[in-house]
Lab assay of single mutants.
Amino acid sequence: EPLWIRPDAPSRCTWQLGRPASESPHHHTAPAKSPKILPDILKKIGDTPMVRINKIGKKFGLKCELLAKCEFFNAGGSVKDRISLRMIEDAERDGTLKPGDTIIEPTSGNTGIGLALAAAVRGYRCIIVMPEKMSSEKVDVLRALGAEIVRTPTNARFDSPESHVGVAWRLKNEIPNSHILDQYRNASNPLAHYDTTADEILQQCDGKLDMLVASVGTGGTITGIARKLKEKCPGCRIIGVDPEGSILAEPEELNQTEQTTYEVEGIGYDFIPTVLDRTVVDKWFKSNDEEAFTFARMLIAQEGLLCGGSAGSTVAVAVKAAQELQEGQRCVVILPDSVRNYMTKFLSDRWMLQKGFLKEEDLTEKKPWWWHLRVQELGLSAPLTVLPTITCGHTIEILREKGFDQAPVVDEAGVILGMVTLGNMLSSLLAGKVQPSDQVGKVIYKQFKQIRLTDTLGRLSHILEMDHFALVVHEQIQYHSTGKSSQRQMVFGVVTAIDLLNFVAAQERDQK
Rank of each mutant, 00 (worst) to 15 (best):
Ile238Ser: 02
Gly240Ala: 14
Val241Pro: 05
Val241Tyr: 02
Pro243Gly: 06
Glu244Trp: 10
Ala249Leu: 06
Glu253Asp: 12
Leu254Gly: 02
Leu254His: 09
Asn255Phe: 06
Gln256Ala: 09
Thr257Tyr: 08
Gln259Ile: 15
Gln259Gly: 10
Thr261Asn: 02
Tyr262Trp: 06
Val264Ala: 04
Val264Phe: 02
Ile267Phe: 02
Ile267Ser: 04
Gly268Glu: 02
Tyr269Ala: 06
Arg278Asp: 02
Arg278Lys: 10
Thr279Arg: 12
Thr279Cys: 12
Val280Gly: 12
Val280Trp: 10
Val281Asp: 06
Asp282Phe: 13
Lys283Leu: 09
Phe285Met: 04
Lys286Gly: 02
Asp289Arg: 06
Glu291Ser: 14
Phe293Asp: 04
Ala296Asn: 06
Arg297Thr: 06
Arg297His: 02
Met298Asn: 10
Ile300Gly: 02
Ala301Trp: 09
Gln302Arg: 10
Gly304Glu: 15
Gly304Asn: 02
Leu305Cys: 02
Leu305Trp: 02
Leu305Pro: 02
Cys307Arg: 05
Gly308Ile: 04
Gly308Asn: 02
Gly308Gln: 02
Ala311Asn: 02
Thr314Gln: 11
Thr314Arg: 06
Val315Ser: 11
Ala316Cys: 02
Val317Phe: 04
Val317Ser: 06
Ala318Ser: 14
Ala318Gly: 11
Lys320Ser: 11
Lys320Arg: 05
Ala321His: 13
Glu324Asn: 15
Gly328Ala: 02
Gln329Pro: 02
Val333Cys: 08
Pro336Gln: 10
Ser338Glu: 09
Asn341Pro: 05
Met343Gly: 02
Thr344Pro: 02
Thr344Val: 02
Phe346Ser: 05
Asp349Gly: 05
Arg350Ser: 14
Trp351Leu: 02
Trp351Ile: 02
Gln354Val: 06
Lys355His: 14
Phe357Met: 02
Leu358Arg: 07
Trp369Ala: 15
His372Glu: 14
Leu373Ser: 02
Arg374Tyr: 02
Gln376Tyr: 02
Glu377Ile: 08
Leu380Met: 14
Leu380Ser: 11
Pro383Asp: 06
Leu384Gly: 07
Thr385Asp: 06
Val386Ala: 11
Leu387Glu: 14
Pro388Tyr: 10
Thr389Ala: 02
Ile390His: 15
Thr391Trp: 02
Gly393Leu: 12
Thr395Cys: 02
Ile396His: 12
Glu397Gly: 10
Glu397Cys: 07
Ile398Pro: 06
Arg400Met: 08
Lys402Leu: 11
Phe404Ser: 09
Phe404Ile: 15
Phe404Trp: 13
Ala407Lys: 02
Pro408Met: 02
Val409Gly: 09
Val409Asp: 04
Val409Met: 13
Val410Asn: 11
Val410Pro: 02
Asp411Val: 09
Glu412Thr: 11
Ala413Glu: 15
Gly414Ser: 14
Gly414Met: 02
Val415Pro: 02
Ile416Leu: 12
Met419Arg: 09
Met419Gly: 10
Met419Tyr: 14
Val420Thr: 14
Gly423Trp: 14
Met425Phe: 11
Met425Thr: 13
Leu426Cys: 13
Leu429His: 15
Leu429Ala: 02
Leu430Tyr: 11
Leu430Ile: 14
Leu430Trp: 09
Gly432His: 14
Lys433Val: 10
Lys433Arg: 10
Val434Phe: 13
Gln435Phe: 11
Pro436Arg: 11
Pro436Trp: 09
Ser437Tyr: 10
Asp438Phe: 13
Gln439Cys: 11
Gln447Tyr: 09
Phe448Cys: 13
Gln450Phe: 12
Ile451Tyr: 11
Ile451Ala: 07
Arg452Pro: 02
Arg452Ala: 11
Leu453Val: 11
Asp455Glu: 15
Thr456Gly: 12
Leu457Thr: 02
Leu457Ile: 12
Arg459Asn: 10
Arg459Val: 06
Leu460Gly: 02
Leu460Met: 08
Leu460Val: 14
Ile463Pro: 15
Glu465Met: 02
Met466Trp: 15
Met466Ser: 12
Asp467Met: 08
Leu471Pro: 14
Glu475Pro: 02
Gln476Trp: 02
Gln478Cys: 12
His480Cys: 11
His480Glu: 11
Ser481Trp: 02
Thr482Leu: 11
Gly483Leu: 09
Gly483Met: 11
Lys484Ser: 14
Lys484Ile: 14
Lys484Gly: 08
Ser485Asp: 10
Ser485Ala: 13
Ser486Ile: 12
Gln487Ala: 11
Gln487Thr: 14
Gln489Ala: 11
Met490Thr: 02
Met490Gln: 13
Val491Ala: 13
Val491Tyr: 02
Phe492Thr: 15
Gly493Asp: 12
Val495Cys: 12
Ile498Ser: 15
Ile498Arg: 02
Ile498Thr: 15
Leu500Phe: 12
Phe503Cys: 02
Glu508Phe: 13
Arg509Glu: 12
Arg509Asp: 15
